[in-house]
Design a protein around this nucleic acid. Sequence first.
DNA 1: GGAACTCGCCAC
DNA 2: AAACGTGGCGAGTTCC
Length: 468
Amino acid sequence: MLNPDTKEAYELFHNGILALSRAEQQGFRVDVDYVLSQKKHLTRRIGRLERKFKDSNFYKHWEHVMKKADINSNQKLGHYIYNVKKIKPAKLTTTGKGSTDEEALKQLNIPELNDLLDIRKLKKVRDTYLDAFHREQVDGYIHPFFNLHLVKTYRSSSDSPNFQNIPKRDEEAMSLCRRALYPRPEHQLMEIDYSGLEVRIAACYHKDPTMLKYLNDPCSDMHTDMAKQIFMLDKIDKSIAGHDTLRQAAKNGFVFPEFYGDYYKNCAENMACNWGKLPHGTWKKDQGIEIDYIDKMFKPYYLSNHLISKGIKSYDAFVEHVRVIEQDFWGKRFKVYAKWKDRWWEEYKQKGYIHTYTGFTCSGIMSKNDCINYPVQGAAFHCLLWSLIKIDQVIQKEHWDTQIIGQIHDSIILDVNPNELKKVWQTIHYITCEDLPGTWKWICVPLEVDAEICEVDTSWNTKTKYKE
DNA sequence: GGAACTCGCCAC
DNA sequence: AAACGTGGCGAGTTCC
Protein backbone atom coordinates (compact mmCIF):
# COMPACT_ATOMS: atom_id res chain seq x y z
CA MET A 1 0.00 0.00 0.00
CA LEU A 2 2.88 2.37 0.67
CA ASN A 3 4.41 3.03 -2.70
CA PRO A 4 6.42 5.83 -4.22
CA ASP A 5 4.75 6.81 -7.44
CA THR A 6 7.62 8.40 -9.35
CA LYS A 7 11.33 7.89 -9.69
CA GLU A 8 11.91 11.08 -7.68
CA ALA A 9 9.78 9.75 -4.85
CA TYR A 10 11.61 6.42 -4.90
CA GLU A 11 14.99 8.14 -4.82
CA LEU A 12 13.93 10.45 -2.00
CA PHE A 13 13.10 7.46 0.20
CA HIS A 14 16.08 5.42 -0.97
CA ASN A 15 18.54 8.20 -0.20
CA GLY A 16 16.50 9.18 2.86
CA ILE A 17 16.74 5.81 4.52
CA LEU A 18 20.50 5.68 3.85
CA ALA A 19 20.99 9.10 5.44
CA LEU A 20 18.77 8.17 8.37
CA SER A 21 20.67 4.92 8.87
CA ARG A 22 23.83 6.96 9.37
CA ALA A 23 22.04 8.94 12.08
CA GLU A 24 20.97 5.64 13.64
CA GLN A 25 24.53 4.37 13.55
CA GLN A 26 25.85 7.56 15.12
CA GLY A 27 23.37 7.45 18.01
CA PHE A 28 22.60 9.75 20.93
CA ARG A 29 24.75 9.63 24.04
CA VAL A 30 23.01 8.62 27.27
CA ASP A 31 24.16 9.28 30.82
CA VAL A 32 23.49 5.78 32.13
CA ASP A 33 24.43 6.63 35.72
CA TYR A 34 21.91 9.44 35.72
CA VAL A 35 19.20 7.20 34.26
CA LEU A 36 19.73 4.53 36.90
CA SER A 37 19.82 6.93 39.83
CA GLN A 38 16.85 8.95 38.57
CA LYS A 39 14.82 5.77 38.13
CA LYS A 40 15.50 4.87 41.76
CA HIS A 41 14.66 8.38 42.85
CA LEU A 42 11.38 8.32 40.91
CA THR A 43 10.48 4.94 42.35
CA ARG A 44 10.83 6.38 45.86
CA ARG A 45 8.75 9.44 44.92
CA ILE A 46 6.08 7.28 43.32
CA GLY A 47 6.05 5.08 46.42
CA ARG A 48 5.45 8.08 48.68
CA LEU A 49 2.66 9.37 46.45
CA GLU A 50 1.05 5.93 46.30
CA ARG A 51 1.10 5.62 50.09
CA LYS A 52 -0.50 9.06 50.35
CA PHE A 53 -3.16 8.17 47.80
CA LYS A 54 -3.92 4.86 49.48
CA ASP A 55 -4.40 6.77 52.72
CA SER A 56 -7.08 9.01 51.18
CA ASN A 57 -10.79 8.66 51.83
CA PHE A 58 -11.39 8.23 48.11
CA TYR A 59 -9.14 5.17 47.92
CA LYS A 60 -10.47 3.69 51.15
CA HIS A 61 -14.03 3.92 49.89
CA TRP A 62 -13.00 2.40 46.59
CA GLU A 63 -11.28 -0.48 48.41
CA HIS A 64 -14.19 -0.93 50.80
CA VAL A 65 -16.93 -0.95 48.17
CA MET A 66 -15.11 -3.07 45.58
CA LYS A 67 -13.29 -5.31 48.08
CA LYS A 68 -10.20 -4.63 46.02
CA ALA A 69 -8.88 -1.42 44.49
CA ASP A 70 -6.10 -1.23 41.94
CA ILE A 71 -4.12 1.95 41.61
CA ASN A 72 -2.81 0.86 38.21
CA SER A 73 -6.09 -0.05 36.58
CA ASN A 74 -7.94 2.76 34.87
CA GLN A 75 -10.60 0.27 33.87
CA LYS A 76 -11.38 -0.60 37.49
CA LEU A 77 -11.24 3.07 38.43
CA GLY A 78 -13.70 3.94 35.68
CA HIS A 79 -16.02 1.13 36.71
CA TYR A 80 -16.01 2.29 40.34
CA ILE A 81 -16.56 5.98 39.56
CA TYR A 82 -19.07 5.71 36.73
CA ASN A 83 -20.90 2.41 37.31
CA VAL A 84 -20.80 1.98 41.09
CA LYS A 85 -20.77 5.57 42.35
CA LYS A 86 -22.90 6.53 39.35
CA ILE A 87 -21.13 9.82 38.66
CA LYS A 88 -21.90 11.10 35.20
CA PRO A 89 -18.74 10.98 33.06
CA ALA A 90 -17.61 14.36 31.70
CA LYS A 91 -16.15 12.54 28.72
CA LEU A 92 -16.39 9.16 27.01
CA THR A 93 -13.76 6.98 25.37
CA THR A 94 -14.09 5.89 21.73
CA THR A 95 -15.80 2.69 22.87
CA GLY A 96 -18.36 4.68 24.82
CA LYS A 97 -17.17 4.03 28.37
CA GLY A 98 -16.50 6.77 30.94
CA SER A 99 -13.06 8.23 30.40
CA THR A 100 -10.46 8.30 33.14
CA ASP A 101 -7.95 10.53 31.40
CA GLU A 102 -6.56 13.69 33.03
CA GLU A 103 -9.25 15.95 31.66
CA ALA A 104 -12.10 13.70 32.74
CA LEU A 105 -10.71 13.19 36.25
CA LYS A 106 -10.15 16.92 36.77
CA GLN A 107 -13.82 17.55 35.96
CA LEU A 108 -14.79 15.31 38.88
CA ASN A 109 -13.25 17.78 41.34
CA ILE A 110 -11.97 15.09 43.67
CA PRO A 111 -8.68 16.49 45.05
CA GLU A 112 -7.29 13.06 45.96
CA LEU A 113 -7.28 12.14 42.28
CA ASN A 114 -4.66 14.81 41.62
CA ASP A 115 -2.18 12.54 43.42
CA LEU A 116 -3.13 9.79 41.00
CA LEU A 117 -2.40 12.12 38.09
CA ASP A 118 1.02 12.95 39.58
CA ILE A 119 1.70 9.23 39.93
CA ARG A 120 0.77 8.65 36.29
CA LYS A 121 3.04 11.42 35.11
CA LEU A 122 6.08 10.16 37.01
CA LYS A 123 5.46 6.57 35.93
CA LYS A 124 5.30 7.72 32.32
CA VAL A 125 8.74 9.31 32.68
CA ARG A 126 10.22 6.30 34.45
CA ASP A 127 8.62 3.45 32.50
CA THR A 128 8.37 4.89 28.98
CA TYR A 129 11.45 7.06 28.67
CA LEU A 130 14.16 6.37 31.26
CA ASP A 131 13.53 2.62 31.11
CA ALA A 132 13.77 2.65 27.33
CA PHE A 133 16.97 4.72 27.33
CA HIS A 134 18.55 2.20 29.67
CA ARG A 135 17.19 -0.85 27.87
CA GLU A 136 18.16 0.34 24.38
CA GLN A 137 21.58 1.84 25.10
CA VAL A 138 24.73 0.13 23.86
CA ASP A 139 27.99 1.39 25.35
CA GLY A 140 26.24 4.58 26.44
CA TYR A 141 24.51 5.41 23.15
CA ILE A 142 20.92 4.84 22.03
CA HIS A 143 20.33 4.20 18.34
CA PRO A 144 16.68 5.05 17.61
CA PHE A 145 15.29 3.64 14.36
CA PHE A 146 13.71 5.93 11.77
CA ASN A 147 11.18 4.21 9.52
CA LEU A 148 9.92 5.40 6.16
CA HIS A 149 7.63 2.47 5.39
CA LEU A 150 5.00 2.56 8.12
CA VAL A 151 3.05 5.81 7.96
CA LYS A 152 0.15 6.21 5.56
CA THR A 153 0.87 9.91 5.03
CA TYR A 154 4.47 9.08 3.99
CA ARG A 155 5.86 10.69 7.10
CA SER A 156 8.43 8.84 9.22
CA SER A 157 8.08 7.03 12.51
CA SER A 158 10.67 6.11 15.12
CA ASP A 159 11.10 3.31 17.64
CA SER A 160 13.45 1.47 19.98
CA PRO A 161 13.35 3.98 21.53
CA ASN A 162 10.97 6.42 19.87
CA PHE A 163 13.05 9.55 19.36
CA GLN A 164 10.05 11.60 18.28
CA ASN A 165 8.00 11.87 21.47
CA ILE A 166 10.43 12.81 24.23
CA PRO A 167 8.66 15.27 26.61
CA LYS A 168 9.06 18.93 25.80
CA ARG A 169 6.02 20.91 27.01
CA ASP A 170 5.78 19.77 30.63
CA GLU A 171 8.79 21.39 32.26
CA GLU A 172 9.39 18.70 34.87
CA ALA A 173 8.93 15.70 32.57
CA MET A 174 11.06 17.43 29.93
CA SER A 175 13.91 18.02 32.33
CA LEU A 176 13.78 14.54 33.89
CA CYS A 177 14.02 12.90 30.45
CA ARG A 178 16.29 15.24 28.57
CA ARG A 179 18.86 15.43 31.36
CA ALA A 180 19.71 11.86 30.29
CA LEU A 181 20.71 12.82 26.75
CA TYR A 182 24.11 14.28 25.85
CA PRO A 183 26.27 15.00 22.83
CA ARG A 184 29.60 13.22 22.38
CA PRO A 185 32.28 14.59 24.77
CA GLU A 186 33.34 18.15 23.90
CA HIS A 187 30.41 18.52 21.49
CA GLN A 188 27.09 20.33 21.65
CA LEU A 189 23.52 19.51 20.68
CA MET A 190 21.74 21.63 18.11
CA GLU A 191 18.17 21.42 16.80
CA ILE A 192 17.13 23.14 13.60
CA ASP A 193 13.43 23.29 12.81
CA TYR A 194 11.35 24.64 9.98
CA SER A 195 8.90 27.18 11.37
CA GLY A 196 5.25 26.59 10.51
CA LEU A 197 6.22 24.06 7.86
CA GLU A 198 2.84 22.35 7.46
CA VAL A 199 0.99 25.65 7.19
CA ARG A 200 3.44 26.76 4.49
CA ILE A 201 3.20 23.49 2.54
CA ALA A 202 -0.60 23.58 2.76
CA ALA A 203 -0.39 27.04 1.20
CA CYS A 204 1.54 25.59 -1.74
CA TYR A 205 -1.50 23.39 -2.46
CA HIS A 206 -4.35 25.86 -1.94
CA LYS A 207 -2.54 29.15 -2.71
CA ASP A 208 -5.04 31.17 -0.68
CA PRO A 209 -4.15 34.85 -1.19
CA THR A 210 -4.81 35.77 2.45
CA MET A 211 -2.53 32.99 3.61
CA LEU A 212 0.15 33.90 1.07
CA LYS A 213 0.03 37.44 2.37
CA TYR A 214 0.51 36.26 5.95
CA LEU A 215 3.46 34.11 4.90
CA ASN A 216 5.11 36.78 2.77
CA ASP A 217 4.73 39.66 5.22
CA PRO A 218 6.95 39.14 8.28
CA CYS A 219 5.09 41.86 10.18
CA SER A 220 1.72 40.12 9.94
CA ASP A 221 0.73 37.20 12.14
CA MET A 222 -2.43 35.19 11.66
CA HIS A 223 -2.46 33.80 15.20
CA THR A 224 -2.41 37.28 16.73
CA ASP A 225 -5.17 38.34 14.33
CA MET A 226 -7.27 35.34 15.32
CA ALA A 227 -6.62 35.98 19.03
CA LYS A 228 -7.89 39.54 18.59
CA GLN A 229 -11.05 38.27 16.94
CA ILE A 230 -11.73 35.39 19.33
CA PHE A 231 -11.02 37.36 22.50
CA MET A 232 -12.51 40.63 21.20
CA LEU A 233 -9.49 42.83 21.74
CA ASP A 234 -8.57 45.88 19.65
CA LYS A 235 -4.89 45.10 19.90
CA ILE A 236 -2.62 42.44 21.31
CA ASP A 237 0.83 43.71 22.16
CA LYS A 238 3.16 44.10 25.12
CA SER A 239 0.62 46.30 26.91
CA ILE A 240 -1.43 43.20 27.62
CA ALA A 241 0.11 40.94 30.25
CA GLY A 242 -1.11 37.73 28.68
CA HIS A 243 -0.43 38.67 25.09
CA ASP A 244 1.64 35.61 24.23
CA THR A 245 -0.75 33.30 26.08
CA LEU A 246 -3.67 34.74 24.14
CA ARG A 247 -1.85 34.18 20.86
CA GLN A 248 -1.03 30.60 21.87
CA ALA A 249 -4.64 30.05 22.89
CA ALA A 250 -5.87 31.10 19.46
CA LYS A 251 -3.18 29.12 17.66
CA ASN A 252 -3.56 25.84 19.57
CA GLY A 253 -7.23 26.17 20.48
CA PHE A 254 -8.66 27.34 17.17
CA VAL A 255 -6.36 27.83 14.17
CA PHE A 256 -4.54 24.47 14.14
CA PRO A 257 -7.57 22.36 15.10
CA GLU A 258 -9.53 24.07 12.29
CA PHE A 259 -6.74 23.32 9.81
CA TYR A 260 -6.82 19.65 10.84
CA GLY A 261 -10.59 19.56 10.33
CA ASP A 262 -12.03 20.20 13.79
CA TYR A 263 -15.10 22.41 14.27
CA TYR A 264 -16.25 25.27 16.45
CA LYS A 265 -17.93 23.33 19.28
CA ASN A 266 -14.80 21.41 20.18
CA CYS A 267 -12.67 24.53 19.78
CA ALA A 268 -14.92 26.60 22.03
CA GLU A 269 -15.07 23.87 24.66
CA ASN A 270 -11.31 23.40 24.69
CA MET A 271 -10.60 27.11 24.83
CA ALA A 272 -13.04 27.67 27.70
CA CYS A 273 -11.51 24.71 29.52
CA ASN A 274 -7.81 25.25 28.85
CA TRP A 275 -7.53 28.99 28.81
CA GLY A 276 -10.74 30.08 30.49
CA LYS A 277 -9.91 27.53 33.22
CA LEU A 278 -13.60 26.72 33.44
CA PRO A 279 -15.25 23.36 33.98
CA HIS A 280 -17.12 22.10 30.92
CA GLY A 281 -20.16 24.09 29.96
CA THR A 282 -19.75 26.81 32.59
CA TRP A 283 -19.01 30.50 32.40
CA LYS A 284 -18.14 32.87 35.23
CA LYS A 285 -16.26 36.00 36.23
CA ASP A 286 -12.62 36.23 37.35
CA GLN A 287 -11.46 33.21 35.35
CA GLY A 288 -8.75 32.49 32.85
CA ILE A 289 -5.86 34.45 31.46
CA GLU A 290 -5.04 37.73 33.26
CA ILE A 291 -5.07 40.34 30.57
CA ASP A 292 -4.37 43.24 32.92
CA TYR A 293 -4.31 46.44 30.84
CA ILE A 294 -1.91 49.20 31.91
CA ASP A 295 -4.78 51.45 33.00
CA LYS A 296 -6.04 48.70 35.26
CA MET A 297 -2.68 47.53 36.51
CA PHE A 298 -3.60 47.58 40.16
CA LYS A 299 -6.54 45.27 39.64
CA PRO A 300 -6.20 41.94 37.91
CA TYR A 301 -8.47 41.85 34.93
CA TYR A 302 -9.41 38.47 33.56
CA LEU A 303 -10.28 37.20 30.13
CA SER A 304 -13.74 36.06 31.20
CA ASN A 305 -14.59 39.49 32.66
CA HIS A 306 -13.54 41.08 29.42
CA LEU A 307 -15.67 38.74 27.30
CA ILE A 308 -18.66 39.24 29.62
CA SER A 309 -18.23 43.01 29.25
CA LYS A 310 -18.34 42.50 25.49
CA GLY A 311 -21.65 40.67 25.73
CA ILE A 312 -20.49 37.02 25.89
CA LYS A 313 -22.48 36.33 29.03
CA SER A 314 -22.74 32.55 28.96
CA TYR A 315 -20.95 29.44 27.77
CA ASP A 316 -23.50 29.04 25.00
CA ALA A 317 -22.88 32.62 23.91
CA PHE A 318 -19.17 31.84 23.65
CA VAL A 319 -19.85 28.75 21.54
CA GLU A 320 -22.06 30.84 19.26
CA HIS A 321 -19.33 33.50 19.09
CA VAL A 322 -16.79 30.86 17.98
CA ARG A 323 -19.29 29.48 15.44
CA VAL A 324 -19.55 32.88 13.80
CA ILE A 325 -15.76 33.19 13.80
CA GLU A 326 -15.45 29.79 12.14
CA GLN A 327 -17.91 30.89 9.48
CA ASP A 328 -15.83 34.00 8.86
CA PHE A 329 -12.59 31.98 8.94
CA TRP A 330 -13.55 29.61 6.10
CA GLY A 331 -16.17 31.74 4.38
CA LYS A 332 -14.22 34.99 4.14
CA ARG A 333 -10.68 35.00 5.51
CA PHE A 334 -9.49 31.75 3.93
CA LYS A 335 -12.21 31.13 1.36
CA VAL A 336 -9.79 30.02 -1.37
CA TYR A 337 -8.33 27.51 1.08
CA ALA A 338 -11.87 26.28 1.82
CA LYS A 339 -12.62 25.90 -1.87
CA TRP A 340 -9.43 23.93 -2.35
CA LYS A 341 -10.52 21.55 0.42
CA ASP A 342 -13.82 20.91 -1.37
CA ARG A 343 -12.17 20.47 -4.76
CA TRP A 344 -9.57 18.10 -3.35
CA TRP A 345 -12.27 15.99 -1.68
CA GLU A 346 -14.34 15.88 -4.87
CA GLU A 347 -11.30 14.77 -6.82
CA TYR A 348 -10.65 11.91 -4.41
CA LYS A 349 -14.27 10.81 -4.55
CA GLN A 350 -14.05 10.68 -8.32
CA LYS A 351 -10.64 9.06 -8.78
CA GLY A 352 -10.16 7.15 -5.53
CA TYR A 353 -6.71 8.55 -4.88
CA ILE A 354 -4.73 11.77 -4.52
CA HIS A 355 -1.11 12.69 -5.25
CA THR A 356 1.36 14.55 -3.09
CA TYR A 357 3.58 17.19 -4.66
CA THR A 358 6.49 14.89 -3.88
CA GLY A 359 5.33 12.01 -6.07
CA PHE A 360 3.47 9.71 -3.71
CA THR A 361 -0.09 8.41 -4.01
CA CYS A 362 -2.58 8.29 -1.14
CA SER A 363 -5.34 5.78 -1.81
CA GLY A 364 -7.67 3.49 0.07
CA ILE A 365 -10.60 4.59 2.17
CA MET A 366 -10.08 8.18 3.28
CA SER A 367 -12.31 10.68 5.01
CA LYS A 368 -12.45 14.30 3.87
CA ASN A 369 -10.09 15.30 6.66
CA ASP A 370 -7.69 12.53 5.63
CA CYS A 371 -7.72 13.76 2.03
CA ILE A 372 -6.80 17.26 3.09
CA ASN A 373 -4.24 16.35 5.73
CA TYR A 374 -2.27 13.49 4.16
CA PRO A 375 -0.67 15.29 1.20
CA VAL A 376 0.25 18.25 3.40
CA GLN A 377 1.71 16.17 6.20
CA GLY A 378 3.66 13.98 3.79
CA ALA A 379 5.07 16.73 1.58
CA ALA A 380 6.04 18.82 4.61
CA PHE A 381 8.07 15.94 6.00
CA HIS A 382 9.63 15.37 2.58
CA CYS A 383 11.02 18.92 2.69
CA LEU A 384 12.77 17.99 5.91
CA LEU A 385 13.95 14.67 4.50
CA TRP A 386 15.33 16.25 1.33
CA SER A 387 17.25 18.76 3.47
CA LEU A 388 18.54 16.03 5.76
CA ILE A 389 19.88 14.06 2.79
CA LYS A 390 21.63 17.13 1.41
CA ILE A 391 23.16 17.99 4.78
CA ASP A 392 24.31 14.40 5.20
CA GLN A 393 25.95 14.49 1.76
CA VAL A 394 27.95 17.56 2.74
CA ILE A 395 28.93 15.94 6.04
CA GLN A 396 30.22 12.87 4.19
CA LYS A 397 31.93 14.72 1.39
CA GLU A 398 33.68 17.25 3.59
CA HIS A 399 34.40 14.76 6.41
CA TRP A 400 32.76 16.85 9.10
CA ASP A 401 33.07 15.75 12.69
CA THR A 402 29.55 17.11 13.24
CA GLN A 403 26.88 14.41 12.78
CA ILE A 404 23.10 14.21 12.36
CA ILE A 405 21.63 12.14 15.17
CA GLY A 406 17.90 12.36 14.56
CA GLN A 407 14.86 13.97 13.05
CA ILE A 408 11.40 14.90 14.35
CA HIS A 409 9.17 15.51 11.27
CA ASP A 410 10.12 19.14 10.78
CA SER A 411 13.41 19.35 12.66
CA ILE A 412 16.92 17.91 12.57
CA ILE A 413 19.04 17.22 15.65
CA LEU A 414 22.81 17.35 15.36
CA ASP A 415 25.77 16.52 17.54
CA VAL A 416 28.01 19.46 16.66
CA ASN A 417 31.74 20.02 16.93
CA PRO A 418 31.97 23.59 18.34
CA ASN A 419 34.70 24.48 15.84
CA GLU A 420 32.34 23.68 12.99
CA LEU A 421 29.30 25.49 14.42
CA LYS A 422 29.38 28.47 12.10
CA LYS A 423 29.69 26.47 8.90
CA VAL A 424 27.10 23.96 10.14
CA TRP A 425 24.57 26.76 10.56
CA GLN A 426 25.43 28.49 7.29
CA THR A 427 25.31 25.26 5.29
CA ILE A 428 22.03 24.13 6.83
CA HIS A 429 20.44 27.54 6.44
CA TYR A 430 21.37 27.58 2.78
CA ILE A 431 20.15 24.03 2.08
CA THR A 432 16.86 24.39 3.94
CA CYS A 433 15.82 27.90 2.92
CA GLU A 434 17.37 28.41 -0.51
CA ASP A 435 18.51 25.15 -2.08
CA LEU A 436 15.26 23.29 -1.40
CA PRO A 437 12.80 25.93 -2.65
CA GLY A 438 15.12 26.43 -5.63
CA THR A 439 14.91 22.72 -6.45
CA TRP A 440 11.24 21.99 -5.80
CA LYS A 441 9.49 24.62 -7.90
CA TRP A 442 6.07 23.89 -6.37
CA ILE A 443 7.25 25.53 -3.15
CA CYS A 444 5.80 28.99 -3.71
CA VAL A 445 6.21 30.41 -0.19
CA PRO A 446 9.34 31.43 1.71
CA LEU A 447 10.74 28.80 4.08
CA GLU A 448 12.32 29.69 7.42
CA VAL A 449 14.27 27.77 10.03
CA ASP A 450 14.94 28.42 13.71
CA ALA A 451 17.78 26.91 15.66
CA GLU A 452 18.29 26.02 19.29
CA ILE A 453 21.55 25.01 20.85
CA CYS A 454 22.98 23.58 24.08
CA GLU A 455 26.33 24.55 25.58
CA VAL A 456 29.29 22.19 25.06
CA ASP A 457 28.98 19.03 27.21
CA THR A 458 25.52 19.90 28.47
CA SER A 459 22.40 17.77 28.21
CA TRP A 460 19.36 18.25 26.01
CA ASN A 461 17.33 20.06 28.68
CA THR A 462 19.31 23.28 28.45
CA LYS A 463 18.49 24.54 24.95
CA THR A 464 18.57 28.23 24.18
CA LYS A 465 17.77 30.08 20.98
CA TYR A 466 20.73 30.13 18.60
CA LYS A 467 21.76 33.52 17.28
CA GLU A 468 24.27 33.92 14.51
C1' DG B 1 1.59 -17.80 27.97
C1' DG B 2 1.18 -14.96 23.98
C1' DA B 3 -1.76 -12.21 20.65
C1' DA B 4 -4.90 -8.60 20.29
C1' DC B 5 -7.39 -5.35 22.33
C1' DT B 6 -8.40 -0.71 25.14
C1' DC B 7 -6.83 3.28 27.28
C1' DG B 8 -3.87 6.98 28.37
C1' DC B 9 -0.23 10.05 26.98
C1' DC B 10 4.14 11.66 24.81
C1' DA B 11 5.63 14.11 20.22
C1' DC B 12 4.73 16.72 15.52
C1' DA C 1 -24.25 15.48 7.36
C1' DA C 2 -20.38 15.38 10.12
C1' DA C 3 -17.17 16.81 13.25
C1' DC C 4 -8.86 16.67 15.00
C1' DG C 5 -4.48 14.50 11.17
C1' DT C 6 0.02 11.07 12.09
C1' DG C 7 2.69 7.91 15.02
C1' DG C 8 4.97 4.57 19.48
C1' DC C 9 4.60 2.49 23.72
C1' DG C 10 3.37 0.83 28.61
C1' DA C 11 -0.07 -1.28 31.59
C1' DG C 12 -4.15 -3.72 32.13
C1' DT C 13 -7.28 -6.91 30.24
C1' DT C 14 -9.43 -10.52 27.45
C1' DC C 15 -9.30 -14.35 24.55
C1' DC C 16 -7.56 -18.62 22.89
